[in-house]
C-alpha cells in the first residue's frame, strides 16, 4: 500500500494547496482530500505484523472502521481507525468512511479485548460522521456510539487518538475518548460538518465556509482550547507528502505511548484505576460556563418552603 503512496512532488491535479492564509474552510477541503493518507496507509507504514480483526460478533463487519493487533513503536497495541477510500470504487466499499452501528460495536468489542490483554489503544480518526441511514437507525446507531464512548471512558489501558483527516461529530468521538489527543495541522474536528451547521443555523448549506470559520474546528484552535494535546505540523499538505506525514504521526504516537507507559507503568496494579481517573479528569474539565454565587442570604426561594 505504501508504494502507491510514494511522495509526489509534481503539482497536484486539484488546486488543493491554497495560496495566502489558510482559512478554516481550506482546511476542511484539505482534510477531505481523497489522496490524504488513511488508516490503512498509516498501518502499512507504521505497524508491524498487523492482523486485522473483523466483525461485531452480532450482525456484520463494517469496512468503514478497521481494527486489529499490530506492533507500533515496539509494542503490541490495538489499532482502530475509520477507513475512507481513495477512489470512488473504494469509497463505495468503505461507505466513504461513514461507520454503521456494527462498526462501532466492533470497535467496542476490540476495546474490551485491549482491556482484557492490557494492550494500549491507538486510534485514527477520519470520518465525515456516523452513517445516517434506515438500517443504521434500525440497528441503534446512537446506542452503538454511546456504548463505545462508555467502554473507552472505562478502559484501564492507555489510549492515544490521532485526528488525521475529518473529525466528524459523534461518529469521530466514538473512538476518540483518549488519554492523549493528537491532531494533524490540516485536520478538522467538529460537532457537525460545516454544511450541516450552515443548513441548520443559516438555513443555507452554501454558508458552510462561514460556519467553518465560526465553529473553530482547526487544530490550532482546538489546541488553544486545551482539547487537543499536540498538533502535528504539516509543512506540506499530507496528500502531497504522505510518507512524511505518516512518519511524523508515527513519531508523535510513539512518543505519547512511551510517555504514557512511563507515567502509568503496565506492571503496576494501580495503573488501570489511575488511567480511568485521569481520563475522567481530562474530559470532566472540558466546558465553559459562569457560576455566580447566590446574592441573597438564606435559602433560595424555591427551597424555602421545604
Amino acid at each position: 500500500m505504501s508504494s502507491s503512496r510514494a511522495d509526489v512532488t509534481t503539482a497536484s491535479p486539484t488546486p488543493s494547496r491554497p495560496t495566502g492564509p489558510i482559512s478554516a474552510w481550506d482546511r476542511v477541503k484539505l482534510a477531505r482530500n481523497p489522496a490524504r493518507p488513511h488508516t490503512l496507509d498509516y498501518l502499512a507504514e507504521l505497524a508491524r505484523d498487523f492482523v486485522e480483526l473483523h466483525g461485531d460478533r452480532s450482525f456484520g463487519d463494517d469496512p468503514a472502521l478497521v481494527g486489529g493487533l499490530a506492533q507500533v513503536g515496539g509494542r503490541t497495541v490495538l489499532v482502530l481507525g475509520h477507513q475512507k477510500g481513495t477512489n470512488t470504487k473504494e469509497n463505495i466499499a468503505r461507505n466513504f468512511g461513514m461507520v454503521r452501528p456494527e462498526g462501532y460495536r466492533k470497535a467496542e468489542r476490540l476495546l474490551r479485548h485491549a482491556g482484557k490483554f492490557g494492550l494500549p489503544v491507538v486510534t485514527f480518526i477520519d470520518t465525515p460522521g456516523a452513517e445516517p441511514g434506515i438500517g443504521s437507525e434500525e440497528r441503534g446507531q446512537g446506542t452503538a456510539i454511546a456504548e463505545s464512548l462508555l467502554t473507552m471512558a472505562d478502559l484501564g489501558v492507555p489510549i492515544v487518538a490521532a485526528v488525521v483527516g475529518e473529525g466528524g461529530s459523534g461518529g469521530a468521538l466514538a473512538i476518540g475518548v483518549a488519554d492523549r489527543i493528537l491532531m494533524l495541522e490540516n485536520a478538522v474536528y467538529a460537532v457537525a460538518s460545516p454544511e450541516a451547521c450552515a443548513a441548520i443555523l443559516w438555513k443555507d448549506a452554501t454558508k458552510a465556509p462561514e460556519a467553518a470559520e465560526t465553529m473553530r474546528i482547526t487544530a490550532a484552535e482546538l489546541a488553544r482550547f486545551g482539547i487537543v494535546d499536540e498538533v502535528i505540523p504539516e509543512p506540506v499538505p499530507a496528500h502531497e507528502r504522505p510518507r512524511e506525514t505518516i512518519l511524523a504521526v508515527g513519531a508523535a504516537i510513539t512518543a505519547h505511548l512511551d510517555a504514557l507507559d512511563a507515567r502509568y507503568p503496565p506492571a503496576d496494579p494501580a495503573t488501570p484505576d489511575r488511567l480511568r481517573a485521569d481520563r475522567y479528569a481530562k474530559f470532566r474539565r472540558i466546558g465553559t460556563w459562569r457560576e455566580s454565587v447566590r446574592r441573597e442570604r438564606g435559602l433560595p426561594v424555591e427551597l424555602a418552603a421545604i
Partner: peptide, 17 residues
C-alpha cells in the same frame, strides 16, 4: 452547534461520569 467542540466533548464527559 453554537458551542462547537465543547458541545461534542460533553458527550464524552457525561458518559464518563
Amino acid at each position: 452547534m453554537h458551542e462547537g467542540i465543547f458541545s461534542l466533548m460533553q458527550m464524552a464527559k457525561t458518559v464518563a461520569a
